[in-house]
Amino acid sequence: MTTARDLFIVTLDAASGRPVEQGDLSLALAGAELVDLIDAQELTLDGDRIVPGPPSAVGDRLLHDAASSLIRQAPYESVEEWLWRRGRGLSSAYLAALETEGQVTRQRHRWIPVRTDRTALADSPDRRHAADRWTSGEPVLAALAAATGVQEQAEDSLRLSDDTTVTVLAAVNDAVMELEAVRQRRNIEGSAFDNIWRGE
């Protein structure tokens, strides 16, 4: 299991109570992949620049895709640039992967035998692993989940001693706030446009 897969499962489990913006989740998943790649010694950070190490075998397919897509020429990519590039549509990629594995299913309408957009998690070892990690309050997972809005930022997640992880988590939070600012600006512009048409 990877942090990104655990995060996706946790947010899917929690989404029934509080919907998660797919853009926020995609940015957090890209951050989770970076954390896992750092732990696997696939890369290091030089300030906020991602410096890849020698390629090696990573067990998870999506994490392998992430490692393969690292930019390997100086001046390298910043964490922020990675989040925006890798994060594009990443939540859909994780959903598709879990559906292929049978860990997520599309729910069928009660009376009409067609699939809907609602998803359900299968009871699986991966789901139990993610739930165990979530209930234990593991700080990296908690901080990433907080970035998606699933929960409030926990104080423990602010006390991480690993500077590289802190750099990644801070970049995720900044990117999510930037995305929210873009959403708000579009809403304001949309409202202003509607008001013009209504003559207000």
Rank of each mutant, 00 (worst) to 15 (best):
R5T: 11
L7M: 08
L7D: 06
F8T: 05
I9F: 01
T11S: 14
T11H: 10
L12K: 12
D13G: 12
A15T: 14
A15M: 11
S16A: 15
S16V: 11
S16I: 13
S16Y: 06
R18K: 15
R18E: 14
V20H: 05
V20N: 04
E21N: 15
Q22L: 11
D24V: 07
L25V: 02
S26N: 04
A28C: 08
L29Q: 07
A30I: 07
G31C: 10
E33Q: 15
L34N: 07
V35D: 02
D36E: 12
D36H: 06
D39N: 15
Q41D: 14
Q41M: 07
E42T: 09
E42Q: 11
T44W: 01
L45G: 06
D48F: 05
D48M: 00
R49F: 00
V51F: 01
G53S: 15
P55H: 04
V58P: 06
G59Y: 11
G59M: 10
R61A: 13
D65M: 09
A66P: 02
A67G: 06
S68G: 13
R72K: 03
R72F: 02
R72D: 03
Q73F: 10
Q73L: 11
A74W: 02
E77M: 15
S78I: 03
V79K: 08
V79G: 01
E80L: 11
W82C: 02
L83G: 00
L83T: 02
W84G: 08
R85S: 14
R85V: 00
R85F: 07
R86H: 11
R86G: 06
G87W: 02
A93Q: 07
A93K: 12
Y94D: 01
A97W: 09
A97P: 00
G102S: 09
T105V: 12
T105W: 07
R106F: 07
R106M: 00
Q107N: 01
R110M: 06
V114R: 15
R115P: 05
T116K: 05
A120F: 09
L121R: 04
D126R: 11
R127M: 03
R127A: 13
R128V: 14
R128Q: 09
R128F: 06
H129L: 13
H129A: 15
H129C: 08
A130H: 06
A131P: 08
A131I: 06
R133S: 10
R133A: 05
W134T: 03
T135C: 02
T135E: 14
T135Q: 13
T135N: 15
T135W: 12
G137D: 09
P139V: 08
P139S: 09
V140D: 08
V140W: 04
L141T: 07
A142M: 10
A142L: 13
A143R: 15
L144N: 03
L144F: 01
A145R: 00
A145C: 12
